[in-house]
Design a protein around this nucleic acid. Structure first.
Lengths: 342, 342
DNA sequence: AACGTTTTCTTAACCGGTAAAGTCCCTATT
DNA sequence: AATAGGGACTTTACCGGTTAAGAAAACGTT
């Protein structure tokens, strides 16, 4: 049984005023006596009325929805703790501003560009959070053309003139490699994320450079699709070399691959960290639940999401473009890293 | 540089027709000649126009957004593979209907009731997916009163007259216990989810009943908040009893707790499955990444989300209420279960 | 040729709000 | 007493579409 919709008119009639007055009251604007204001709120309460956001948006006021399009095959997404944690950080900020998140999975960047444009043109959103930047990302130009407020989650070198929120991945990679080298490792491998992503490229470059600087005897890099399966495959391949040639330490680009790596080591009869050290990335709760616990480049993903959301609100309310670094991931040694067996 | 907004008027002018004609064309309604239709689409293409969804919604057509409110502390959410996988399943259906998901975290059911009402009254959504039902859930009445199309994810006994999509948890629990008993286990424990949730209660009851029926020598149940930490705590407490008194098999209500349990066993020097068998629930990819791999009551969560979304569309387009069971979780034995050591 | 039907398109009234401009009345000032 | 200045509301014109009702042209019929 659908209650016939209550509109501003009904409230106005009930309170004995014009709909303009109701609008003024509900937007806390001056020009009404306390008495009338009360009468209006009372009437609205009695009728169970709340302003129709669609109409309000159309009439030109603010939109209290922000967009987030994620470009991953839907099946893979469920497996990435990163996004859910990121989203939960975003939500924690949205919730206190009474704002909602419009979430959409897209198949590729072009589709995302179209979607963002539709959202923006259609006034469906007040701004957007852009993630997963790649080199020469088409979203940069598109968003500039539209004049849409956004926060770009990615390194300034990828996000151009857009307001960005980013972590210093290069430094973090350097620190990870230095740490392993300091433990005595000379043959280090890295199981990277999706090659197309800008931050993967930056980490790859940083790893190369660190390997050269430290004059490592061996340095491998593989890229994957971030899935546990791919991480397992990569690990299996890395560890199947002869003991004298295989890496004694492996750095992973997320934690799910590190967990997979841990289990591959066990399956191959190698002990962690005695035979091989493993270092995870992002550090969700997962890293503390394995045995041995996983050392990780720890990163407050939840806080990262919250920062992104806050920065987006800044952009929506007119802050100029800016670059907002968030804390660099810090090395959190746990049970999966140790000096190599001599 | 904001491109001045292109509206239906501009397109109409350019095509030399009235805006009504443009509307007809874009809604594929009869009453226009092929030639005019083409001219209109051509004009729209040239101007890069797409209908403003806000205006379209206001004018009374359908809303292409569905709502999902999740009631968990934001921090916890990131850790639950279930939701992300469920959401990705929902998205996989939405995407092909060009629909978006409005996601919001709420603190409690009352807040959710208010939110759903605001969304619906404000025509922000065309329908909603309701999750995490509890006994005497206030959403049932509220939604009926509003006449809003929804799909309730939960057992019919909890969702009343609402269209529901559900798994037969009781049967699954029974199967899990029977399986362990068949392996020879006589002391079985269950680490359950949040006590307030309806399906937790149903599983608890089913476990009790199964234990009675099978005349188990020992049966424990604990409820937690679904977090890995809580799972670890519970496991530690269960396993710290004297060998002759402690459970030889533990069933978990999700997979993250099972992973945590696995690591606690290792930390306590117990071997899995020789000393204790572990059985996970939901079975995300995680279960195949541990060592030993985790046996699980496997459940296609992605498909579950997709089914829920499809059912919601049915409800939106006028299908009457109905109850849609999805396949019962099936036992997937892997490395973490075996007969108990005698 | 006159007349009813279709087909094709236009007009105009909403949808439910917002906001600028206008009205009315009451008080203070000169 | 006339005038200016506010406060408290109301009017009215949008926002950008949809849709029912109306009008003009094309067509078939007798």
């Amino acid at each position: 049984m659908t209650t016939s919709r209550v509109t501003i008119k009904d409230v106005a009639a009930r309170a004995g005023v014009s709909k303009g007055a109701v609008s003024l009251a509900f937007n806390h604007k001056p020009g009404l006596s306390e008495a009338t204001r009360d009468r209006i709120f009372e009437a609205a309460r009695e009728l169970g009325w709340a302003p129709n956001l669609t109409a309000r948006t159309l009439a030109g006021s603010r939109v209290d929805v922000v967009g987030l399009a994620i470009c991953r095959p839907a099946r893979l997404l469920g497996l990435e703790p990163f996004y859910m944690e990121f989203v939960s950080g975003v939500e924690s900020v949205l919730i206190e501003r009474n704002c909602s998140l419009l979430l959409r999975l897209v198949r590729n960047v072009e589709e995302e560009v179209g979607l963002q444009e539709t959202w923006w043109r259609g006034r469906q959103i007040g701004g957007s959070i852009l993630v997963d930047f790649r080199a020469d990302d088409p979203r940069v130009g598109a968003v500039e053309r539209l004049g849409m407020p956004v926060v770009a989650v990615g390194h300034p070198s990828l996000t151009g003139s857009l307001t960005s929120v980013w972590t210093d991945d290069a430094t973090a990679v350097r620190e990870a490699v230095r740490y392993l080298a300091a433990l005595g490792h000379r043959r280090i491998a890295r199981v990277g994320g999706a090659a197309a992503l800008g931050h993967t490229a930056m980490r790859t470059a940083a790893f190369d450079e660190a390997a050269r600087t430290l004059e490592l005897a061996g340095a491998w890099q593989v890229t994957t699709d971030y899935s546990g399966e791919a991480g397992a495959r990569a690990t299996r391949s890395l560890l199947s070399a002869a003991p004298a040639d295989r890496p004694t330490a492996i750095v992973y680009d997320n934690d799910i691959m590190a967990v997979a790596g841990l289990s591959v080591a066990a399956e191959m009869g190698l002990s962690v960290p005695a035979d091989v050290s493993l270092l995870a990335w992002d550090d969700s709760q997962l890293c503390r639940l394995t045995h041995p616990t996983l050392s990780a480049m720890s990163h407050d993903v939840h806080g990262f999401g919250a920062d992104a959301a806050r920065t987006l609100f800044g952009a929506i309310t007119g802050d100029g473009p800016g670059s907002h670094p968030v804390p660099t991931p810090v090395l959190t040694p746990r049970g999966s890293t140790a000096p190599p067996r001599m």
